[in-house]
Design a protein around this nucleic acid. Structure first.
Length: 409
DNA sequence: TCTGGGGTCCTAGGACCC
DNA sequence: TCTGGGGTCCTAGGACCC
């Protein structure tokens, strides 16, 4: 199988091309700053100007921002300073105070994401959606897909995407998803990299273990403690040694990854497992002293989750909460109902019971509401006692029990 | 200098059933 | 009466990804 991996670099304002720009942050403050920049005094008159007309000097800067928030993405000019995704804004401000700070416009991003995926689907229909800016493609059967090892097709996609959206993307081509994803990083931005099976030693083994998709900060730290820095060093250890140190599953997976082995197919469609909403507060809140504010946020989260469920056509029966204390430690509680729901009041009630099971003496920085064990709404396979059948009847849990069904009929 | 929001998957213990 | 595995579900926490 040949895999194709693309990631999109999002850039909106033409006048900012080539400049260090950081996108992210706590919404409100950045939005306000941007609005202020958009409504300048020109000749003494307040004048609205489109964002594309704002002079570079008038954009909000990282150094002027105080508040919680992280970077969603950064231009390559900003990355030169060491700032990057998921970094706290306060830290980024130290590294690159002059960077321009823009708010995230998810509506806009989703629109572009959809457009890019539609273009790709037109060219290569076997596409796996990996989130807002990533896809895997199996183009084994695409006519012309094998020309120049896939380079011709990759160029066609880049060209079409750029012409129709103005976005660039980086492409990695390899025998499987694992290697294709790594390859896509080789020539960023707007690059193409092709890695063949025989390139494993020369192109993959020199890389840091952290470059393997699935090895995060914790696993990397543990590997380093064992004296393993590169993928090549990881490949020097045998299967049993890795299983002894990382467990059956992770050890075996690491062994395969180090040898460039990955048999995962392209997944064309998948159902969601859970739907959730969460929010970090602008300041830490106390369960007692800020009860009213917290209660309002809690209710709003439940309403949002309920409306997400309804809009997407799902019902769920495991309702849970998540909260994060001021020391960043988080806890979760959940409860599974005997019926499915998408009702805001039910969510609020059950989530409220979950909240009572958690210590609330410490200040909170985040609250979240989650619904899992999802099923498609209106699916006749889903037993919903309060809708489909009379609620006083016992639940039909054992179809193979004759005695039980006799009671029902 | 503290660290968003939306997800998935894995582990592990206990309950419960066969 | 005691001992046992195996399977599934529920709950909590944590790693990781985009």
């Amino acid at each position: 199988m040949d895999a194709f991996y693309a990631s999109v670099e999002l850039l909106r304002y033409p006048q900012l091309k080539g400049l260090p720009v950081v996108i992210g942050g706590g919404r409100r403050t950045v939005d306000d700053a941007l609005r202020l920049a958009g409504s300048a005094l020109i000749d003494g008159e307040p004048t609205e100007r489109p964002l594309s007309k704002i002079p570079v000097a008038d954009f909000p800067r990282l150094k002027d921002y105080t508040g919680r928030g992280v970077i969603t993405t950064a231009t390559y000019a900003a990355r030169q300073f060491g700032v990057g995704s998921a970094m706290g804004l306060m830290k980024a401000a130290k590294l690159c105070p002059q960077a321009i700070l823009l708010p995230v416009d998810f509506t806009e991003i989703r629109k572009y994401s959809r457009a890019v995926k539609d273009i790709i689907l037109d060219i290569a229909p076997l596409m796996e959606d990996r989130g807002i800016d990533e896809v895997f493609i199996d183009f084994t059967e695409v006519p012309g897909g094998q020309r120049e090892g896939g380079r011709v097709l990759a160029r066609l996609m880049q060209k079409t995407i750029f012409e129709q959206t103005g976005l660039t993307c980086s492409v990695g081509v390899a025998p499987n998803k694992l290697i294709a994803k790594m390859a896509s990083e080789f020539n960023k931005p707007n690059g193409i990299a092709i890695v063949f099976e025989d390139d494993l030693e020369s192109k993959i083994w020199p890389l840091a273990c952290r470059k393997i998709n699935g090895i995060g900060p914790k696993a990397d730290e543990k590997l380093k403690a064992l004296g393993i820095e590169t993928i090549g060093q990881l490949a020097e250890h045998d299967l049993q040694w890795l299983i002894d140190h990382f467990g059956q599953k992770t050890g075996a997976w690491m062994f395969d990854a180090a040898h460039g082995i990955d048999a995962r197919p392209i997944v064309l469609e998948s159902e969601p497992v859970s739907i959730s909403r969460e929010t970090s507060f602008e300041r830490d809140l106390h369960a007692v002293r800020d009860k009213a504010e917290l209660g309002a946020i809690f209710t709003r989260l439940c309403e949002q989750v309920a409306s997400d469920l309804q809009r997407k056509g799902y019902v769920g029966k495991t309702i849970g909460i998540k909260l994060r204390y001021d020391d960043f430690k988080s806890v979760t509680r959940d409860h599974t109902l005997d019926h499915y729901t998408d009702d805001a009041h039910t969510l609020r009630q059950i989530a409220g019971q979950c909240l009572k099971r958690v210590p609330l003496t410490q200040r909170l920085r985040l609250l979240g509401v989650r619904v899992g064990s999802l099923a498609k709404a209106g699916n006749s396979d889903v037993y919903e006692p309060n809708k489909a059948l009379a609620p006083e009847l016992p639940a039909l849990t054992a179809i193979d029990s004759v005695v039980f069904t006799d009671q029902l009929f």
